[in-house]
Design a protein around this nucleic acid. Structure first.
Lengths: 191, 191
DNA sequence: AAACCTTGGCTAAGTGTCTTAGCTTTAAAG
DNA sequence: CTTTAAAGCTAAGACACTTAGCCAAGGTTT
């Protein structure tokens, strides 16, 4: 039997593509193997199992998202940076509906690339918030608030949770605009 | 064989309890059946299958959550109502970690109780926002923003996504305080 | 009380998923 | 050319959900 020549990276990248097509929940080792032209158990030569694959996928997606967030904010500050980053965030979630949910997985301490990616993502938010003069505990609180709003929005949108006809882009921009206001008048604790 | 005397309600209620104990993802028909003292296929006499059970669980949890949100806000207005409702929301998610995720499922149009529960939940938010003078499109946008923030926060918290030592209660209260400010100075569109 | 019949329980069996064990062959290294 | 690590394979097991079909409990009807 001729070898296909897989390695971990090709497996994970194909899993990412497949997840975007069918949804993360529907990503199955059987479908992935068939897509790669290999029998299912052969995947275990490259990935420890289904959970390990999900973790590697999370590392990949988190790195991609962190890069897009950072790139969007570069050269901007304040509300400009916030809007650009928020748009990049939602764009990513919409373009990669299968990868996005994995970005909320807690980074695996045993995977340095995953940890680094998570730090870059949070770091990007922190950098934007510094533009509002938010540091220390205030920055931590504001980061949590911003992550919550962005993640919550794209999650509800993906789940079809916004039933009413009101334009969803509009609602998102309003939310980001309101966060801009919030950050400018953030209830300071002086942490 | 003596009959256990199950019905749909007892099955769904036990599923809710079990989900809270082991997590929604770990809720399995096998575990539920064993907990109820029947063989697995017997459950199909009361529920159409695993997905239907999840839907009924969603209807139950959504109704519970809607009730707690409404109750918390009754007799209050403005920031008081907002804080009370937000606290009730997070309380519910923390007390019922297995039920909570099902509340984000889109209500099944074929299940009137589910639909009604969803409307009550959104209605409770709408009522609070009316206290800020928000109506029409503004209320829709603000509702989406509030739902996003609350849902995002409790989801990230449950996933262990808040790594830093900063107190999580504090961060939540800061977020809610900032939403209070946002709603008072909401970027109006006059919808 | 006896017959009836609805229904809630059961066992058996099939499908799809992940996983492990162990064999074979490729193809690179010496 | 021989050796060997690794990448593929088949076979088989553990669980999950689901369907089919049987049987008895227990209420209803005569």
């Amino acid at each position: 039997m001729p070898r296909v020549g897989l390695n971990q990276q090709t497996v994970v990248r194909e899993a990412a593509r497949l997840a975007d097509e069918v949804g993360f929940q529907q990503l199955t080792l059987a479908a992935l193997a068939s897509r790669l032209g290999v029998a299912l158990p052969s995947l275990y030569k490259h990935v420890r199992g289904a959970d390990a694959l999900a973790q590697k996928l999370a590392a990949l997606a988190t790195a991609e998202l962190a890069t897009e967030m950072s790139t969007a904010a570069v050269g901007r500050s304040g509300g400009d940076a916030l809007r650009a980053m928020a748009d990049a965030y939602r764009d990513y979630a919409l373009r990669h509906p299968g990868r996005y949910p994995t970005t909320q997985r807690v980074p695996d301490p045993a995977d340095p690339e995953h940890v680094e990616a998570g730090e870059r993502a949070v770091g990007a938010i922190f950098a934007v918030l510094r533009g509002y003069g938010l540091t220390g505990d205030d920055a931590v609180d504001a980061t949590r608030a911003l992550r919550s709003a962005l993640h919550g929005f794209v999650t509800l949108e993906a789940a079809g949770g916004f039933g009413l006809p009101r334009d969803v882009d509009r609602s998102y921009h309003q939310m980001v605009a309101s966060m801009d206001i919030s950050f400018r008048s953030w209830p300071r604790t002086g942490g």
